[in-house]
Design a protein around this nucleic acid. Structure first.
Lengths: 233, 233
DNA sequence: AATTAAGCGGACCACGCGGTCCGTTTCTCT
DNA sequence: AGAGAAACGGACCGCGTGGTCCGCTTAATT
């Protein structure tokens, strides 16, 4: 119905693609709060170009989030054909989080702030529909306990993603363990499965913190510089 | 060793307390990214006063996070006396998330960015120690599967907190369900327990989104105002 | 090759943030 | 009560952000 006959010039289309790719990469490894400047730079275009393709940062994010959601939906629909309903569901979850490098932005956008965006919300509801089908099928096959819903599952997975993402380069194995725990949570009671990897220790969390020698925060000189590390706010 | 004989003036101490309280309240319901201005205002003091008591925003946050962590540690140590080791652990978790209104900042600070802060990190390691004892005791009693560590548990709980916090006023029951799922995850296989509440549906997530009628993002007039909603970045 | 408009990109803007400074007020001590 | 230090608070600063504008470049068309 809204088939825009407007053709993009070749370079324009190429740049748009570059922006999408750059945004995907940066958002995935640094979260959604990075400045647009960096994205434009990585894409090799000026900031003006970015804002012509995407009127606001929100639009840019929506574009790539929807892209990721649609991919997930496609993967999910394919998984519905998988002979083993339980495996189909768990593989999809593993894959989503495993390739967190490409899906992190997706899970970050699973918050009411972003669900206010029309495009995201509609893709999201489709995604939930897909997940619901997958869950129901797994339940019918006895691979998933009967009393959980797609939303239950999605929230758990989002939780794992957020928790893992909070620690820059926490061992991949830790993420997999968390997913195994999710699996244990939503499996019917009695379905015992071992967890991947070793039980993590405190050191596994703190190992990622290098630098930051000994000086306390109040020990700073009178120099105007204040925060030694990047603080969100 | 560093017993500061420096006594605070009466009004100074009162203001410090007010700031701590205001910060606690605001951080808990809006996250750690709110500006210091709002905190000072709620406390009824000027911004200057805030920065005199806490040289940087980081210090303010560290102060209240450490406060919360110490409370949790105290509760945990008390729970170690509880006759039922399993119940002790699960009650503590429930309580922590249940009073998310006071502990949200705590879980938000469980990220490598904040663990770089000396005071937070040391309180955190103590907290993990406490949790470790609680978990080990529960394991010995057969209430928790043997192959999970305190870090596993903490990460799951953090995940639930983050996931729940992403939806402003999602029903409290949803949070409780998630915790029941965590419990199912870390319980020994076969320990069946029902989940509290009903399986949530998509509507339970979207219900929190009011307003935002129909206008697309690109429909804005030429007015300089851009984002209709608050976007993190 | 010439023409034209789509596209480019960086200078520019307003805003809100964390953090500082200093003239004024208020507590405390004698 | 009076003196002096401690605390107050708002004006102020620099920075980084998302977003706009406009003179220049370049791809498409004939």
């Amino acid at each position: 119905m809204d088939e825009e006959p407007r053709r993009l010039r070749a370079d324009a289309e190429r740049n748009r693609r570059r922006l999408l790719d750059a945004a995907t990469e940066i958002f995935c490894e640094r979260g959604l709060d990075v400045g647009v400047a960096e994205i434009a730079q990585l894409a090799g275009v000026g900031r003006g170009t970015l804002f012509r393709n995407f009127p606001s940062k929100e639009d840019l994010i929506a574009a790539i989030v929807v892209e990721r959601m649609n991919e997930s939906i496609a993967r999910g629909r394919a998984a519905l054909e998988h002979p083993d309903p339980g495996q189909a569901l768990f593989d999809l979850i593993d894959e989503s989080v495993g390739r967190q490098q490409t899906d992190r932005a997706l899970f970050e956008a699973l918050a009411d702030t972003w669900l206010a965006n029309d495009e995201i919300r509609s893709a999201h509801s489709e995604l939930v529909g897909m997940l619901d089908a997958l869950v129901k099928r797994a339940q019918a096959a006895g691979a998933v306990r009967k009393d959980v819903s797609a939303i239950d599952v999605m929230m758990m997975v989002k939780g794992v993603c957020e928790a893992v993402a909070s620690f820059q380069h926490v061992d991949h194995a830790v993420a997999m363990r968390q997913l195994d725990l999710v699996r244990a949570a939503i499996s019917p009671p009695g379905a015992a499965r071992p967890l991947r990897g070793q039980p993590p220790a405190l050191a596994d969390l703190e190992r990622t913190i290098e630098g930051r020698g000994g000086a306390g925060p109040a020990a700073a000189t009178t120099a105007p510089v204040a925060a030694p590390k990047a603080i969100p706010g």
